[in-house]
Design a protein around this nucleic acid. Structure first.
Lengths: 229, 229
DNA sequence: ACAAAAGTGTTCATGCTACACCCATGC
DNA sequence: GCATGGGTGTAGCATGAACACTTTTGT
């Protein structure tokens, strides 16, 4: 009887993923129509139950892959939601994760199969259970993370213009930023490579493309920086 | 069969509490000798299993009360630890919380009953499982929280001197602070009341006692501030 | 008188903010 | 030649950092 915890309650544990994407319309979140009861047909975060053989991170990666086909995605654990009545069917504790993906990369067929849709964060529908609270929390965390880690690049294509980067940060922080100040702050971090290549789609003059230089970033042992925008 | 999740795995969920206290020797953590197998007799965080009828917060409050006799304590959820083999006995996911208590207030009899002891954070023993990792995480979070919320006051007696406050912040941040700069930054937040009362124990001259003014703080709708020390 | 901690302001350097004009190109 | 977005620098201001001496009082 010593080597177990038999008298203790066991519960269901799930993960829910807040998946952020960014396109020229702004910051978006990927939602699905829930395909099982209860609340079938309502908008919901992507989730799944934890299996005994995987960690929470593993479960979140599995869920994300199932709905987007993506792997090797930036993902961070947010918070555990545990109100007793949060799921009306059975006692379920859910651990929320948020993920940042390049919106161009995901598998659109998979998205359609699951009746998933991208929503602007400013036009989110009502979600099931406490999912709206999770989303609000994720947005707060993303805003904070922006000032301590170069997470923005996760949401952009590999090559991007300064304007795209600026608009991304404006979308995340929900405020206008001064173009010149923004660029000089980004440049002072010294973690971008300017390419000899221009994006000619957005203007006649064309604007230089940049890439995030992960090696340079790692080389500085910058496990965090401070970026005040 | 629709209104349940019968086919899903259920797991054990526990909470572990990192309890911080502060005295004139520095920042401390309350640990217990684990009183059941496995790892019985080893140093451990205070923990307990989640019951079906309570939230994680509820469980953490219950555990904290059981070991310290305290209620209405500042507490914050940290992170969910879920490596598959983190507990050798049974699959257990643990959600860590940290709490800040006034070290003078707790019930010393209870502490003795449980063979609990205060350890300086610089002299922590090896703990069971992944508890050392939890502690490291809690210290990081506390350092960050210090710059966004007036959490320091939770660790001090109701009335305290500027020197105590300074030494507390030095202990949390693990660096020396300039006395004059510190005091003027704290004063500029305008959330303290200076009392007409001196602490005569620490010097011949005596030093004024202060209290945290929660009403003033709330009145400013300061859900967070920035304090760069 | 002296020891021990309390209390108190100023200067300097840095970083942040605000702000406007020329450039290159396709049409 | 003009319309469109791209790209660039500076001056004023606010904040943070560094720094030393006087006060009080019990012994």
């Amino acid at each position: 009887m010593l080597n177990n915890y038999n008298t203790e309650d066991k519960v269901l544990l799930s993960v829910d993923c807040i998946i952020f994407g960014f396109d020229n319309e702004g910051l978006k979140i990927l939602l699905i129509k829930r395909d099982f009861e209860p609340e079938k047909g309502k908008w919901s975060l992507m989730g799944g139950f934890l299996k005994k053989s995987e960690s929470l991170n593993g479960a979140a990666i599995r869920v994300l892959n199932r709905y987007t086909g993506l792997q090797d995605i930036y993902m961070e654990q947010l918070y555990a939601y545990s109100e007793v009545d949060r799921d009306p069917v059975d006692r379920t504790i859910s651990v929320a994760f948020y993920a940042l993906i390049n919106i161009e990369n995901h598998n659109t067929a998979l998205i359609q199969d699951h009746e998933a849709e991208w929503f602007s964060i400013s036009k989110m529908p009502k979600l099931i259970f406490d999912h709206n609270e999770m989303v609000a929390h994720a947005i707060r965390r993303l805003r904070y993370r922006t000032s301590t880690k170069p997470v923005g690049f996760e949401l952009l294509p590999e090559k991007f213009t300064m304007r795209q980067l600026l608009e991304l940060y404006e979308a995340i922080l929900d405020k206008e930023l001064d173009k010149r100040n923004f660029i000089s702050k980004i440049n002072s971090l010294d973690i971008l490579v300017k390419l000899n290549e221009k994006d000619m789609l957005s203007s006649r003059k064309g604007s230089y493309l940049y890439m995030f230089d992960k090696e340079k970033y790692d080389a500085k042992l910058l496990n965090h920086f401070v970026l005040n925008l």
